[in-house]
Design a binder for these strands. Structure first.
Lengths: 214, 214
DNA sequence: ACATAATACGAACGGTCGTATTATTATTGG
DNA sequence: CCAATAATAATACGACCGTTCGTATTATGT
């Protein structure tokens, strides 16, 4: 049992280099666009040399997906946990979520992109994407429940509904940023988040909104 | 100048059959997954026979995109215009937007899927996707402004912000439906929309929310 | 320093990709 | 009904796909 930060072997280093290139490529053109040849060219490896690090293209895609999850956790999720429980932590998460791709030098969040890319397909990659995003969804709901416990949110708000709208804000932010090249995208997402919070934080106000006819 | 509903030539009929198959395929696996060979097999044509209908694969993608826009307009947008101006028309649009893919027998809205698929790339397809969705965004904003004129919405709400959040609701609905297979997705989207409307329809309440610190 | 395992390479495979050219068959207007 | 034209097919091409295999090279542990 070696420590997680153990010295990397040559193979592990190469693998990391490959995954770095794969992640960058996938964040631009999608995971399905990953090709052994292009990736080999970019990393200076031979096709077969690169291929040997993964048993198949699907394994490469899965590895790239796992790597992007690891980076999201390291750059966005875990740092948010150091904020106080409740609303501050939620705010930190959404803030980090909207900005971590920049720090990671990626074109967009590979997870959300992979969601749209694979959501209507079958296979191992789709399953992995669903698993990862479902987990993130659950973590968000935990934070929402915590915010109820701390008194930041009203007890009677719909946790799943809140998470649904949260994911929508992130999705729209990505669309505004990438498709519309809107420089105000992040700001709009923050405003949307605060509006969402506002409708949940004040019990009286929240009750009014919740009980109106649909 | 023939009428738009003129009798179709054999070629036009075949082309329509091809586009139908292309649209279905694209709504499942994305526009980039469209291949001449697979499409030829599905339609019973030869590769070269099918190819002759489009000068290139890119033209095929663009034609499929245009076709999906035409269907969206026919099944979702135009019908919404028969609802009274203002909030009712907006409600009709979002309702149709969330359900038209079912009527069209597609796996998801090809436009929103194409947005996520091409938003970080370059090329004619990306440009077309941006053009189409920007137009839809503008049409949404027109409806929002109309709702201000009819008095349904407060005059001082941020039209672009409202449209931003509207697109987020649709995106989250698609994710919930397709990735999470959430049967309540449409319902959640409707609730989110009504919550969004609620924060814009009552002047006093809207003012409160808008002026809070961010 | 040496044995051994890890790592990378080059070449080749069968397939499929998009596309061009050339020929054949259907459709259609006069 | 026939000529003109549109529509489809047949065939082939080079490029790239993921993958396999045998071999060379390079680290690594002792």
């Amino acid at each position: 049992m070696t420590a997680p930060e153990a010295i990397k072997s040559k193979g592990e280093i190469t693998r990391a280099i490959i995954l770095q290139a794969a992640l960058q490529q996938a964040s631009v053109s999608g995971f399905e666009s990953l090709t052994i040849g292009t990736l080999a060219e970019q990393t200076g490896l031979s096709k077969s040399g690169l291929f040997a690090h993964f048993g198949s293209k699907e394994d490469l895609q899965l590895a790239a997906l796992d790597e992007s999850v690891a980076r999201f956790n390291r750059l966005a999720f875990i740092p948010a946990l150091s904020a106080p429980r409740g609303l501050p932590r939620m705010r930190a998460l959404i803030e980090n979520w909207l900005t971590w791709t920049e720090k990671a030098e990626l074109a967009t969040c590979p997870l959300m992109a992979a969601s749209a890319e694979f959501d209507r397909r079958d296979g191992a990659v789709r399953d992995a994407v669903e698993r990862h995003l479902r987990r993130l969804n659950i973590e968000c709901m935990k934070m929402i429940d915590m915010a109820k416990q701390t008194g930041d949110f009203a007890e009677d708000i719909d946790t799943e509904q809140f998470a649904f709208e949260l994911f929508g804000i992130v999705a729209s932010c990505n669309q505004a940023r990438n498709l519309f090249r809107d420089k105000l995208a992040t700001q709009r997402a923050q405003i949307a988040f605060e509006r969402l919070v506002a409708s949940a934080c004040n019990p009286q106000k929240a009750a009014k909104i919740k009980t109106q006819k649909v």
